[in-house]
Computed example of a mutant assay.
Amino acid sequence: MRNSLMYGQLVFVMVMWGFNVVAIKVIVGQFSAVTITSLRIFLAAMVVYFILWGTKQVRLPNRQEFYYIFLISLTGIAGHHFFLSVGLTQTTASNAGLVLGTVPLFTSILAVKMLKDQLSVLRIIGIIFGLVGVSFVILVGNINGLALNAGDIYIFLAVLFQAISFIYIKKATETMGARLVTGSTLLIGSLLLFIISLVMEPNGIASLQNGTILGWGVFLASAIFATAIGQFLYNHAIQFIGPGKSSIFMNLSPFFALLGSFLFLGEQISIAHFFGFILIVMGVILGSGMGDRLIYKRRLYER
């Protein structure tokens, strides 16, 4: 019963995160990308801490917990959101959504190294499929034709940083609640991003004057729902069912990103996008180990 609730929770998060790619594309089009991202994440942190204060779950982490919190803040918040926001100023939301869909694949690869998972033949095939799918989206699905877009490379780096953070989230939530990990990492990550913005975007604060009512509305929705509530719910799922199973649901995020980019931004979805999407989904299913588990269950049933 608990797993069923977790799975439903993860589907809800993927809907929010898929459409959030479109939301961030709108936001960075009106404001300085890194500055507005640091403020969006800071607002999300305040929302989570408001919940923590209300439920009396705020406490100081010990040394080991702070070590994991800082690593998550550096990779999953500062690193991931920096490259995501900057990347979306140079590529389409549809491309970004598809590349972000490879997070489970790279989480699985990192788990081999960091959590001592084993690579089977199916998982190796899946990794190859996933990498080919990403390459297809970046090169063939590019709006400028067969070209390497810097924005897509930034999104790819955002994927790597987020995958690394999922491993550390699993370690951190072994002794800390998911809410406290979420609030702490969002707060520290937002401060790191703000420091970066002061160097990269000296006129970033001044750009806030350029926002429209739509832009600020999207900013609030993205910060409160996708970043605060979405990150908390996802970290909560990692705590109970692990990074591997949780990351499989990120297969759904590219679909909603494609749908949102078509409906709200009017972006053209090409055959290349769909072909890349199929390869990525196949790669994630095999590369994450889900194919191995299905074969194992089938053999048990046949016995």
Score class of each variant (00 low, 15 high):
residue 134 V to T: 03
residue 175 T to P: 05
residue 142 N to W: 05
residue 160 L to R: 10
residue 152 D to H: 08
residue 120 S to P: 10
residue 137 V to G: 02
residue 238 I to E: 11
residue 141 G to F: 11
residue 206 A to S: 05
residue 164 I to L: 15
residue 122 L to F: 14
residue 174 E to A: 06
residue 219 F to Q: 00
residue 125 I to P: 12
residue 216 W to E: 03
residue 206 A to D: 15
residue 178 A to E: 14
residue 229 I to A: 12
residue 171 K to T: 11
residue 234 Y to G: 10
residue 101 G to V: 08
residue 215 G to A: 01
residue 210 N to A: 01
residue 149 N to Q: 01
residue 221 A to S: 14
residue 100 L to R: 05
residue 191 L to Y: 10
residue 134 V to N: 09
residue 207 S to H: 07
residue 197 S to V: 01
residue 193 L to H: 01
residue 219 F to T: 01
residue 201 E to N: 09
residue 161 F to E: 06
residue 180 L to N: 04
residue 138 I to R: 04
residue 216 W to P: 00
residue 112 V to S: 02
residue 225 F to R: 00
residue 141 G to M: 05
residue 214 L to C: 01
residue 185 T to H: 06
residue 112 V to I: 15
residue 112 V to R: 05
residue 133 G to A: 03
residue 225 F to H: 01
residue 202 P to N: 05
residue 190 S to K: 09
residue 207 S to M: 09
residue 148 L to K: 11
residue 105 L to P: 13
residue 212 T to V: 05
residue 230 G to K: 06
residue 220 L to P: 00
residue 239 Q to N: 04
residue 179 R to Y: 14
residue 103 V to Q: 03
residue 225 F to I: 10
residue 202 P to R: 11
residue 154 Y to H: 11
residue 234 Y to H: 14
residue 209 Q to Y: 13
residue 215 G to S: 05
residue 193 L to R: 03
residue 189 G to V: 10
residue 174 E to K: 15
residue 153 I to Q: 09
residue 231 Q to P: 02
residue 141 G to R: 10
residue 108 S to G: 12
residue 139 L to E: 08
residue 202 P to A: 12
residue 161 F to N: 03
residue 145 G to D: 12
residue 216 W to K: 01
residue 110 L to C: 10
residue 132 V to W: 07
residue 144 N to S: 08
residue 118 Q to I: 13
residue 134 V to K: 02
residue 124 I to C: 08
residue 241 I to L: 07
residue 134 V to I: 12
residue 107 T to P: 05
residue 139 L to M: 09
residue 128 I to C: 08
residue 162 Q to T: 03
residue 144 N to L: 02
residue 221 A to R: 14
residue 185 T to A: 01
residue 212 T to W: 02
residue 203 N to D: 15
residue 185 T to Y: 00
residue 147 A to F: 11
residue 226 A to T: 11
residue 108 S to I: 07
residue 207 S to D: 10
residue 116 K to V: 12
residue 234 Y to I: 08
residue 147 A to Q: 13
residue 233 L to P: 09
residue 211 G to Y: 03
residue 170 K to A: 13
residue 183 G to L: 14
residue 180 L to Q: 00
residue 147 A to H: 13
residue 176 M to N: 00
residue 158 A to M: 10
residue 151 G to I: 00
